Amino acid sequence: MKNRWVTFIMGRVLVKIEGKGVERLINICARKRVSLWSVRKLKTGTVFFYISLHDVHHFRHIARDFDCNVSFIRGEGLPFLWKRLLKNSGFFIGVFLFLALITVLSNMTWGIQINGANPETEHHIRKELDKLGIKVGTFHFFNQDLEKLQRELTDRVNNITWIGVELKGTTFHFQVVEKNEPKKSKPPGPQHLVANKKAVIAEMFIEKGKPLVKVNQFVKKGQMLVSGMIGKEDEEQLVPAKGEVWGKTWYQSEVEYPLTTHFEVFTGNEKIIHEIKIGSVEFPVWGFGNIAFQNRKIEKNNYPVRFLGWQLPISYVEKTVREKEGFERELTKKEAVQAGILLAKNDLLKNIPDDAKIDKEIVLHEKVENGKVKLTVYFQVIENIAKEKPITQGD
Rank of each mutant, 00 (worst) to 15 (best):
D130A: 15
P284C: 06
G268W: 10
V321M: 02
F263M: 01
I362N: 10
P187L: 11
L238R: 14
N295C: 02
P353V: 08
S185D: 13
R40W: 04
E383N: 06
K300L: 07
N27C: 02
N295Q: 13
K367D: 06
G209I: 05
V215P: 00
L343H: 02
V363H: 09
G289R: 05
A386G: 04
K232R: 11
N384Y: 11
E122Q: 05
T267W: 08
V22H: 06
L14H: 14
E282F: 10
G137K: 12
M204K: 08
R33Y: 11
E18D: 14
V104H: 08
K220A: 15
I352S: 00
M229T: 04
T171F: 07
Q150V: 10
E120H: 14
K179T: 12
I160S: 03
L149Q: 06
V255Q: 13
E203S: 15
H54W: 15
S35P: 06
E207F: 12
I114M: 02
Q175A: 14
A30N: 09
K220G: 12
Q223P: 02
R24N: 14
I314E: 07
D359Q: 15
I28K: 15
F379R: 09
L312F: 09
H262I: 08
L349W: 05
N346I: 03
G222W: 10
S38L: 07
F263D: 04
K214D: 06
I341N: 08
K389H: 05
R74P: 04
